[in-house]
């Protein structure tokens, strides 16, 4: 774990144009909750919980923030070739990958899980336990998302697009038709973990054992770190392109 690399990754992330969207999404989530509270005079916590927190927050904001952060922490450097400066230092490629991933995870958890926590509280200030459970589930799911997106961008050249396909098509459309897919859907893991922590939550996670959700998330996270390190260690500088 190299602190300098992490610090540089963090700084570069917020120097890019994508940080507008990165910050806008959680703000939008919290703003939406505020709006709902205002418009419904504090009444609609129960009915608005699912569309706002589950569908929008857990289903869109969290994975999108994770996708933007993960592609932003590794992608641009590889694209313009400046990754070469990092790779020629006497630091293990796995350490480089891990240091960057840690930044991605940290930003995702703070922006994604953090905003979900705040949003939950805005909607229903009395349900602290619920909000916490959702936040923990989101944190785990967010970490797993980062790992999954790293794996996706290692397999093919279009990290952002394949990540979007995963979130929108795979987890969005298909998972609602084919319930078997919940066993390989990070979103389902997160929701199940949250449900496991607070029994009053019903996040439509289907029939998924809680331990499986935790284990599967862990597997994804470890696999992601390994694949990221491997991708960097096999990185070949393409010549005059």
């Amino acid at each position: 774990m190299n602190g300098t690399i992490s610090r540089l990754a963090f700084q570069s992330l917020f120097g890019q144009k994508r940080w507008w969207v990165l910050v806008a999404l959680p703000l939008l989530l919290m703003g939406l909750c505020l709006l709902v509270q205002v418009l419904t005079s504090g009444d609609a916590a129960a009915t608005s919980f699912e569309p706002v927190i589950v569908v929008f927050g857990l289903g869109l904001v969290l994975p999108l923030v994770s996708l933007l952060v993960t592609t932003g922490v590794l992608g641009p450097e590889i694209d313009d070739g400046s990754i070469v400066y990092l790779l020629s230092k006497p630091v293990s490629r796995y350490v480089v990958a891990l240091s960057k991933l840690v930044v991605a995870v940290a930003v995702t958890v703070v922006l994604g899980a953090g905003s979900l926590f705040v949003a939950g509280l805005i909607l229903d200030p009395s349900q602290l336990g619920q909000a916490l459970a959702v936040a923990v589930g989101a944190a785990v799911a967010g970490t797993a998302y980062c790992a999954a997106f790293v794996m996706l961008s290692a397999i093919n050249r279009h990290g952002m697009i394949s990540g979007l396909i995963y979130v929108l098509v795979f987890e969005g459309l298909l998972a609602s038709w084919l319930s078997g897919l919940r066993f390989v859907s990070v979103s389902a893991f997160g929701r199940r973990i949250a449900e496991g922590l607070d029994d009053s939550l019903n996040l439509v996670a289907g029939n998924l054992p809680v331990t499986y959700a935790w284990l599967a998330s862990l597997v994804v996270i470890v696999a992601g770190c390994y694949v990221a390190g491997r991708r960097l260690s096999r990185f070949q500088l393409r010549g005059d392109e």
Partner: peptide, 22 residues
């Protein structure tokens, strides 16, 4: 290109999603 695609999709879908929810 990757970022442009991502931001456009996110902006269009999220905005429509928010409108529907609200």
């Amino acid at each position: 290109r990757g970022l442009a695609v991502g931001v456009t999709i996110i902006a269009l879908l999220v905005s429509t999603g928010v409108v529907t929810a609200v």
